[in-house]
Nucleic acid binder design. Structure first.
Length: 698
DNA sequence: CCTGATACTTAGAATCACAGGT
DNA sequence: ACCTGTGATTCTAAGTATCAGG
């Protein structure tokens, strides 16, 4: 399942400017740090003049970051009400249109649905407005004292998945050709496997072995005696039944689907929210994870193991002492009820496969998550003000007499320049073999004195988080190169590259340089600053919206490439690309035709004052124009999609890019925000949308 | 120091729902 | 009106970071 990466980017679109350098390192940094030819000393060029310093956007102390912004609320409300006016006018004109059509169309069925649509739309808008009014503007409030996450917390506890429903009698499991009626527990686990039969997982040796081992634990003594070989198991009927069920669910009538939807809505209403300090907040994962087979990523040694059903007896509840304590399901008890307001979770349990803790926490649009997110970006912005000093320091440290210090300096260089993750050590054999910066081993890099016309090239090839391959060839400074050679001396495959360094030491050092600074802050900082720079370089206020959005996506893409955010190319990619291309072709033909007609109309109208001809001419002109616009839009879309084939933009958008950069860009470029942020994102970043002025600088 | 526990963020895949084309 | 491809949402694994306690 390792995905190979190739960044062969498309040529420019229609000869248009395309300034993105698709290089997963920070080019500007290379420009700013020069290496002296012989002894490898470093000089950092002054670039203070370039950087805007703004006391309002670069707060000096973290306590100043969370000053309530009372004044803005008034402004925002004004804006809000005018927005409402506009919407009302829009709605009225729509209603008029509907009425007009009523007169023309005698068919009664059609107009009713149209009315219904209009009504539904109106309802949606109304709901939106209400939601906006209900929103907790926590960013205008004082922060709590350190470590206190809430003062009041009340909830209904997690939602448990439905109990297992035994197989109907006509669906049988066969072992060695003979039908075997399994005990309930064994049957449930058998079904987990049967449901996954179409998946590649079930063909893997490790998966199958782990599964059989855990399955047998669930069996009765007799079953265990009988079933010893997975290859003799025939899950065919169970598999067929499952597929049938999926199909049936898909083919439910509209009404039945509606009923299901309403039932889910009811569950959401009851369990999906909590009260936190007088505000109703959405919970992110209120459903207990159902039992199933563990699906690790990559070559996970535990893939296929049974993930057991969680009982209330396994769950710890966290809530206010004086709140209504959630009721466990009838006949059950909670493992524990505690009242710890220094943590943000509402419930937790220990998962049996890895022995790790799972938590029920709030949604991303909640105060608790939002505040933390805001803080994260403020720390990253603070790094901006001292990153030059930190860079000179680690360049200096490359020369240190202490091996540990040198290793730290090189690691930091990678983390900064290549946006690598910190790389905590992991327990061997418990997880897939993946690494980050500090856990790199000698086999993960290859040193080339010269490669492709460049000197001192480091070739990286390793599996990172989620077993995503990181492959990159990076020219580095001589000093770094020499150090790497030194670190690799007398080591063999399997040895740590940085044997005197771990993430703990690295972070301790970083925190001493700047409060709150850890390795991951560099990723946030470099991602956000790259977006800002790319947006500045790529977008043009005279472009149309489609072109501006392409620029935005390209800036976003530069960040995704830097952070190595990948996705599997969509299964339908080639097909959908071809169909888009076909559409473009047909639109081109249309355009040609329209152009011809326009020429003809011009000829006819020449010298004539016949108003009919002139009107016709105008019409033809408009057709040509419209065709051209549509064609351009499609071509832009095609380019965008092709470039995005295996790059995931969403992860950086959601986790690394300071939303205020995007909000300010939208305001400056007059691009509607919803072209860039969907509803979820707008919800999550409500704080940024509310507080950001067009002049915001990261 | 080191180690395991704890709490929280970040991540891609799977699944769902709905917009836009026919 | 219906179908389907796509973007949104859900799911949960896999990271980072810190801390208590030996």
């Amino acid at each position: 399942m390792i995905m190979l990466l190739k960044y062969n980017y498309l040529p420019n679109l229609c000869g248009r400017r395309c300034g993105v350098e698709w290089n997963r390192s920070l080019l500007w940094f290379q420009l700013n740090v020069k290496e002296e030819a012989d002894d490898g000393d470093f000089v950092t060029e002054k670039k203070g003049a370039k950087r805007k310093r703004d006391s309002a956007t670069c707060p000096s102390s973290s306590s100043a970051l969370f000053v309530p912004v009372k004044k803005k609320k008034v402004e925002a409300e004004d804006e809000g009400s005018s927005g409402v006016e506009k919407k009302k006018i829009k709605r009225e004109s729509k209603e008029q249109k509907v009425k007009k059509e009523e007169g023309e169309l005698p068919v009664t069925k059609k107009k009713r649905t149209k009315e219904e649509i209009a009504a539904a739309r109106a309802l949606k808008i109304k709901k939106k407005e209400e939601e906006e009014q209900q929103r907790w503007r926590w960013w205008e409030e004082e922060k709590y004292e350190d470590g206190i996450k809430w003062k009041f917390l009340e909830h209904k506890g997690p939602y448990f998945p439905p109990e297992y429903q035994p197989l109907p009698d006509n669906v049988k499991f066969f072992y060695d050709g003979k039908a075997v009626k399994l005990s309930l527990a064994a049957e449930e686990v058998a079904l987990f496997f049967a449901q996954m039969l179409d998946h590649e997982y079930t063909t893997k040796e490790v998966f199958r072995n782990n599964f059989l081992k855990d399955w047998r634990k669930e069996m009765t003594l007799e079953e265990r005696m009988l079933i010893t070989d997975l290859n003799k198991c025939d899950f065919g009927e169970l598999h067929a039944m499952h597929k049938q069920k999926v199909e049936a669910r898909k083919n439910l009538s509209k009404e039945e689907k509606q009923i299901n939807k309403e039932a889910n809505q009811k569950i959401l209403e009851e369990f999906g929210y909590c009260m936190l300090d007088h505000h109703r907040e959405r919970i992110g994962n209120f459903k207990i994870e159902p039992p199933g087979l563990f699906r690790g990523r990559g070559d996970h040694p535990k893939q296929g193991m049974l993930k057991k059903r969680i009982q209330p007896e396994d769950v710890i509840i966290n809530c206010s002492r004086n709140s209504h304590i959630p009721e466990p399901p009838t006949g059950h008890k909670w493992k524990e009820v505690r009242h710890d307001n220094t943590v943000t979770w509402l419930a937790s349990w220990t998962e049996n496969v890895q022995g790790s803790c799972k938590y029920v926490m709030l949604n991303a649009n909640s105060k608790l998550k939002g505040e933390k997110d805001w803080e994260k970006y403020e720390v990253a912005r603070k790094l901006k003000s001292c990153v030059d000093a930190i860079r000179s320091q680690y360049q200096e440290d490359l020369k240190s007499k202490q091996m540990g210090t040198r290793q730290r300096a090189v690691a930091l260089y990678f983390i900064d320049k290549l946006a690598l993750r910190a790389g905590n050590e992991k327990e061997e054999g418990e997880t897939a073999d993946t690494v980050g910066c500090c856990s790199l081993r000698v086999e993960h890099i290859t040193l080339h004195d010269a490669l492709d016309g460049e000197t001192c090239v480091v070739e990286f090839d390793f599996l990172g988080k989620d077993c995503i391959r990181y492959y990159n060839k990076v020219p580095v400074s001589k000093r770094v190169f020499k150090n790497l050679k030194l670190f690799m001396e007398n080591k063999q495959e399997g040895d740590d590259l940085f044997d005197r360094l771990n993430t703990n030491m690295l972070n301790k050092h970083l925190t001493s340089l700047m409060p709150g600074l850890t390795a991951k802050v560099f990723r946030t900082y470099n991602a956000s600053i790259t977006l800002q720079q790319q947006l500045k370089g790529l977008s043009n206020s005279s472009d149309n919206v489609a072109e501006k959005l392409l620029s935005y996506n390209r800036a976003n893409r530069a960040v995704a490439v830097l952070c190595n955010h990948q996705r599997a190319p969509p299964k339908t990619f080639e097909q959908s690309m071809a169909s888009l291309q076909a559409k473009i072709e047909s639109r081109k033909e249309q355009l040609e035709l329209a152009k011809k007609e326009l020429k003809l109309a011009k000829k006819e109208a020449k010298g004539s004052s016949d108003s009919k001809l002139l009107v016709m001419l105008e019409k033809k002109k408009k057709t040509v124009q419209r065709c051209e616009e549509q064609l351009l839009k499609m071509e832009v879309q095609a380019t965008d999609r092709e470039e995005n084939k295996q790059i995931a933009l969403s992860t950086s958008k959601l986790n690394y890019l300071d939303p205020r950069i995007s909000v300010a860009w939208c305001k400056n470029m007059e691009v509607p925000l919803d072209k860039v942020y969907n509803k979820t994102l707008r919800d999550k970043f409500a704080w940024a949308i509310d507080m950001t002025e067009p002049d915001f600088v990261f």
